[in-house]
């Protein structure tokens, strides 16, 4: 009698929950332990280029999250019917389609920001994070975890991008999101904005210090790269 009631429960357990431990891991791992920029060392180029101010960094992060999430989802949906030899081209077409969508939306609704981001939105097509996650994750996983992985990596990228942008905009221009934070009297007393922060090497320093802080917090990451 008891066996009858247990059997269906067992089959139910086999089906994974929407936010099972594994799925949650796919979402949260890229935020810190497997961060695309600081641990996988992908997508550095755009992190150097679009982090002078916070606003474009946020838009860029959102754009990449969108592209990465939906590209992963679509690739995972059709992964079984993609011939192995042309998989890169298929991936590229899908990514390019999504990037064009993001680009057009930006141009239509946020023209100034799209001007500021210039080619870097278009260059999401070649962003190593998107392609890397498609190859490494979406080609071998079910759609839902792939989607979460895409979102997670986009957000992990976003965290670094926004952190760097906050530091660079605050020290480089004395403002955040365009609002002046360093008061005028500080300038009157001899404070000067740091010109180095407007140059791309500053982003490299800041990412380097972030990696230093991250590694010293989590020694298990030390030998990754």
């Amino acid at each position: 009698m008891s066996t009858d009631t247990i059997a269906p429960v067992k089959t139910k357990e086999k089906k994974e929950g929407l936010f099972s431990k594994k799925n949650r891991k796919a979402l949260t791992d890229p935020l810190d332990d497997n961060n695309p920029i600081t641990v996988q060392v992908l997508g550095i180029c755009s992190a150097l280029a679009v982090t002078i101010q916070v606003k474009p960094a946020i838009i860029m992060a959102l754009g990449l999250t969108m592209v990465s999430a939906f590209a992963s989802l679509i690739i995972a949906l059709i992964r079984d019917s993609i011939p192995g030899r042309i998989r890169m081209i298929v991936q590229l077409i899908i990514v390019a389609l999504l990037v064009t969508l993001v680009d057009q939306v930006l141009k239509a609704f946020m023209y100034d920001v799209s001007k500021q981001l210039s080619v870097f939105v278009g260059l999401i097509i070649t962003n190593c994070i998107v392609m890397g996650r498609l190859e490494a994750f979406a080609m071998a996983q079910k759609p839902w975890p792939s989607f979460l992985d895409g979102v997670g990596n986009g957000l992990g990228y976003g965290i670094i991008l926004i952190t760097v942008a906050v530091v660079r905009e605050f020290f480089g221009a004395g403002s955040l999101l365009g609002y002046q934070l360093v008061p005028q009297w500080a300038y009157d007393h001899g404070y000067v904005n740091n010109g180095l922060m407007a140059l791309p090497p500053a982003a490299l320093f800041i990412i380097g210090m972030y990696i230093w802080w991250q590694r010293s917090r989590k020694p298990k990451l030390v030998n990754v790269s």
């Binding site: 000067v192 740091n194 010109g195 180095l196 922060m197 090497p201």
Partner: peptide, 10 residues
């Protein structure tokens, strides 16, 4: 070098 790039005016 840091000062040279950070505060060129000085």
């Amino acid at each position: 070098a840091f000062l040279f790039f950070a505060f060129p005016a000085f």
